[in-house]
Amino acid sequence: MSRVAIIDYQMGNLRSVQKGFERVGWHAEIVSDPRQIGPTDKLVLPGVGAFGDAIAELRRRDFVPVIQEAIAAGRPFLGICLGLQMLFDVGYEHGEHEGLGILRGKVLKFDLPHEFKVPHMGWNKGHIVRQAPILKDTAQDTHFYFVHSYYVVPEDPSVVAIETDYGHPFCAAVWRDNLFATQFHPEKSQADGLKLLKNFAEL
């Protein structure tokens, strides 16, 4: 039987993600050793913090092959916040850092007029571009909770599932086959975010 496995690489409040799944009736296990991940597990890659440090920790803990193999095998995968950003080729936070390269594109810092505070923090509405399975029963322009200074720029616009506007439109969620990822925090987005977690767990 499949379970939800939350990848622990010491970057982020994993317990809040775990509690989100528990609130919608799913057991989610925090996993700090890639050998603990089974061949049918659904994977969640959350994270807050610096792109370079996070990628280095994923590599040091040997999670990168597990992530790549799970996605290639068609198992449901959900990235959250920094877990979205690391899926791309390169991030420019305090230098240039190679990402996982699972999606083509880059991660850039907001460069906005002074009236827009960075980090972008708080509630903002998401415009659904493509109706991903995890967005089942999610209304157009639903509000989600964001905390980030960097945003992803996919090379392939067809992977964008949600756009949000903050100074300019940016990608707030992606979807490709079994791969889903959000810039916002579903675990902090009240009922609508929990619905997303439930949809993912039920895939």
Rank of each mutant, 00 (worst) to 15 (best):
A5N: 05
M11F: 08
M11S: 05
N13Y: 00
L14R: 11
V17L: 08
K19P: 00
K19G: 00
G20K: 01
V24Q: 06
V24C: 00
W26G: 00
V31K: 15
R35A: 15
Q36N: 15
V44A: 02
L45C: 05
G49N: 08
G52T: 08
I55C: 06
A56G: 14
D62I: 06
F63K: 06
F63R: 07
V66M: 13
Q68Y: 04
P76W: 09
P76A: 10
F77Y: 13
L78K: 04
G79A: 07
G83Y: 10
L84F: 08
Q85R: 12
M86A: 12
G91W: 01
Y92D: 03
E93L: 10
G95Q: 05
G101K: 06
G101A: 13
L103P: 07
V107S: 06
K109F: 08
F110Q: 00
E115H: 15
V118K: 09
M121P: 07
K125D: 13
K125Y: 14
H127T: 14
V129N: 07
V129F: 03
A132P: 11
P133Q: 00
P133K: 07
L135I: 01
T142D: 04
H143S: 05
Y145E: 06
V147M: 09
S149V: 09
V153I: 13
V153N: 06
P157H: 04
P157V: 07
S158V: 03
V159Y: 09
I162N: 04
I162H: 08
Y166R: 03
H168N: 05
A173E: 01
R176L: 06
D177W: 10
N178M: 10
L179Y: 09
L179G: 12
T182H: 11
L194D: 09
K195Y: 00
K198S: 15
A201N: 00
L203R: 14
